[in-house]
């Protein structure tokens, strides 16, 4: 038993695990809306944009969360407005805006080489660096985003299902989109230290698509996605300690395994159902 609980003796591990569970649940929640809107690529793009903001914050000596947050939010709004007001599609807008933002970060790093190591951590995740303050920020963002989605549940559901018709029925879809972009940017920023920029997109998308495979109910999809995100966060952290692999990578690999199992089970169930129908 002591061997199993060994990693929890360390404060960094306790902090990291708590942060991984919270970010897993948070990404699981937001991911449902991302997946159902067909915007899976935005998590990938926006995390890269936020990386640019993080580097700028570092150089300008701004508060990391504030600087990266404002940068990410502006990138999300720019993407939204570019898609709304021009002929450019969402994928192209995400590609241009977020890659340019990421390039700003890379350019600044190459110019000021002294902080290269910190940004390796931002790119690939560094659980050792998670402090109590970080856990507090993750918890606060999780509560705020959870609250936002709770109180905007009906508007978000309608906007996600059919934004144009939702507008006709009186939903202020521009406000809903703006608040959602803000929530997404906040979730990505607090997840960056755990998952790393390069892996956040998977943490956003994989629990949600796994949940989608398991249910046809929107509410159950949200619950399953949160639980899958939180559990893979916990066990991913735990396994990463023993196999000595980066925490972000272990969490995403575990999520991929869960997705594979869900895909296998649902495919088998469908095949059995088809056979039963054929023979009845």
């Amino acid at each position: 038993m002591d061997i199993l609980l060994q990693p929890f003796q360390y404060e960094f591990f306790r902090n990291g695990t708590l942060a991984a569970v919270l970010t897993g649940a948070l990404c699981g929640l937001i991911g449902v809306y991302i997946v159902l809107r067909g915007m899976s690529y935005i998590g990938h793009g926006l995390s890269h944009a936020i990386f640019g903001g993080a580097v700028v914050s570092f150089v300008m000596q701004w508060n990391f969360y504030l600087g990266a947050g404002v940068w990410g939010f502006i990138a999300a709004i720019l993407i939204n407005q570019t898609v709304r007001r021009t002929k450019i599609g969402a994928d192209a807008a995400i590609g241009v805006i977020t890659t340019a933002s990421f390039a700003v970060g890379v350019a600044l790093i190459s110019r000021y080489r002294r902080f290269t190591r910190s940004f390796d951590a931002a790119l690939f995740g560094n659980i050792l660096g998670v402090t109590w303050q970080d856990v507090f920020v993750v918890a606060a963002v999780t509560v705020l985003v959870g609250g936002l989605i709770f109180f905007l549940y009906k508007q978000l559901l309608f906007t996600t299902f059919d934004a144009e018709v939702a507008r006709i029925y009186g939903v202020k879809t521009e406000w809903v989109d703006t608040l959602f972009a803000l929530a997404l940017a906040a979730a990505l920023i607090v997840s960056m230290q755990i998952m790393g920029v390069t892996l956040i997109a998977a943490a956003l998308v994989v629990p949600a698509i796994t949940a989608r495979l398991l249910t046809d109910s929107f509410n159950r999809m949200i619950m399953y996605s949160i639980v899958i995100g939180a559990l893979t966060g916990f066990f991913g952290m735990y396994f990463s300690y023993y196999i000595d692999v980066a925490s972000g990578a272990t969490i995403v690999l575990l999520q991929a395994v869960v997705f594979g199992v869900a895909l296998g089970i649902t495919t088998y169930q469908k095949r059995v159902e088809r056979l039963v129908h054929t023979h009845v």
């Binding site: 159902l36 559901l157 996600t160 299902f161 059919d162 989608r212 249910t215 046809d216 109910s217 929107f218 999809m221």
Partner: peptide, 8 residues
């Protein structure tokens, strides 16, 4: 209508 959307 998106018929794959999980909605009752």
């Amino acid at each position: 209508v998106d018929w794959r959307f999980p909605v009752t």
